[in-house]
Design a protein around this nucleic acid. Structure first.
Lengths: 148, 148
DNA sequence: AACTGGCGTGAGAACCGTTCTCAACTGCTG
DNA sequence: CAGCAGTTGAGAACGGTTCTCACGCCAGTT
């Protein structure tokens, strides 16, 4: 939608795996990558209906993109499941609970150390983690915080 | 199911708020508190059907308990939504992705510092976070790790 | 250029988890 | 015991997700 740059990397990921990067998949990816906030699958389907992208296709593509690590699942304040495109590499979302704007940050240094301690203490072999931080962004705070 | 002790604290929480701690709510609470692993609402409903607890009641009670901070929502490896009773105070779950056993830990020191940095950097007013760590517990590793 | 096979897609039905509705019930208070 | 407010259970309704299957697109072949 806005920035065509990241799309090229994505195409390479698909090509590497031998998965076709179809028109629909491109549109779906661009919807999430071009948004500055997390969006639900329903929102993506609504937005792309006019482009001739079916609902089932959106579901399938989101699963595919998630599997490839190209979309991350997050929750808004009401617990609704949304998706957002991570920047390259591992990062965590700071989500505005009101407007769902997402700012990504790298908090892995903090978590890796914690994971090592946990692994030693519990004997679990740790394979991942999920960290989201919730806040209200400056814009929403200015607007009263309760607005959409 | 196992430890009757924590139930007393819960009753106090309900009484403080003037919310009736009914037989059904007690059973539902005991189901989650007595389990050493996270369970879905459906599992709770199945388990308590024989005790004459309706499905709708389980849903309502889980929402109530979550609102009171007495149940925490987590996800297993397949992304399924489960609930688990936190220990007193704020803690985070280390979840076995295979059997859903939950070990709770206090990782707030690590996160609080991160939150302060984020707040300063982004201008967000931070109201919460969600941290889950995923691993395979020693038992499941011994059993092959892929089972369950 | 036409044919063929394989995969992705779209429409709509099916499925299933969650919520809603409403009458019956329970536990209080007087 | 009567009256009241809040809770509950059964089943219907709802809505999001998945499934089914015929169709279309593309690449490779003739």
């Amino acid at each position: 939608m806005t920035d065509p740059e990241p799309t090229h990397d994505i195409e390479a990921v698909f090509r590497e795996k031998g998965i076709p990067f179809t028109r629909q998949r491109r549109l779906i990816w661009e919807f999430f990558a071009g948004a500055d906030r997390a969006a639900t699958i329903g929102e993506a389907a609504d937005a792309l209906r006019g482009d001739g992208v079916g609902q089932a296709t959106v579901y399938r593509a989101v699963i595919l993109l998630s599997d490839l690590g190209l979309l991350a699942r997050v929750q808004d304040r009401r617990g609704e499941i949304c998706y957002t495109a991570p920047t390259i590499g591992h990062s965590h979302p700071l989500i505005c609970g009101v407007c769902r704007r997402v700012v990504r940050f790298d908090g892995d240094g903090d978590v890796k150390e914690l994971e090592a301690r946990l692994s030693a203490a519990t004997g679990f072999s740790i394979y991942g983690h999920h960290l989201e931080v919730y806040g209200i962004c400056p814009d929403c705070r200015r607007d009263g915080g309760a607005g959409g």
